[in-house]
Amino acid sequence: MIEFLHTYGLLFLVGSWPNGPVGGFAGTLILAFLGLAGAFPAALLVALARTGDNRYARALSTVWVYTFRSIPLIMIVFWAYFLLPVLTGTEVPPFSTALAAIIVYESAFLAEIIRAGIQSVPAGQREASRAVGLGYFQSLWSVQLPQALSNMIPSLVNQFVSTIKATSIVYIIGVQEAAFSAQQINSIELTAALRTYLVLALFYFLLCALLSKLAKSLETRLRNKRLGLAA
């Protein structure tokens, strides 16, 4: 095993970099981070549209959610892969294609989590914030979202973790990331499939477990602050 890691460690960690794009674990980390960083704000907008008063925005956001959560990610990846070049008229690198597909797909799920979070804040909170003169966005930003987000942490972590794991699917369009590296190693070694995929599984596990742990401590901190236990 040590020799195996010695031989392929670099390929696992960064893919074919510096002779090609950054891949391997680093590729997955970058893809997952950018995916979440893009999907979360997009989801926030969709959720606000879905809970807002404008009926066109509401209809559009509803269609968005229904469409993208009802199609498997792999279909969206394929669609993006074949459609984006036609739309833009230029070749789109696989990484950007995958990123766009992940953002679109995850935004649908995250939007529903955020919508539930906003709607779980008691109506009295919105009324009290409007009664002291806060506008719609001020009330959302200062009163409703802080409470909604802290209630949403467990569901958000679920979705974040699922997004990280979902990035593994994009190796099929040739994006350099952890699963792609594993695939390469497996086809070089031929007899090391178990070892290869054990390392891959451990990587995903550690990454997701670390994220869950961080979220748990954030949750505890917010609760303590609310109860006046934190210094």
Partner: peptide, 9 residues
């Protein structure tokens, strides 16, 4: 308000 509605956070 009857229920105070202070901002708990």
């Amino acid at each position: 308000f009857q229920q105070f509605n202070l901002f708990p956070h």
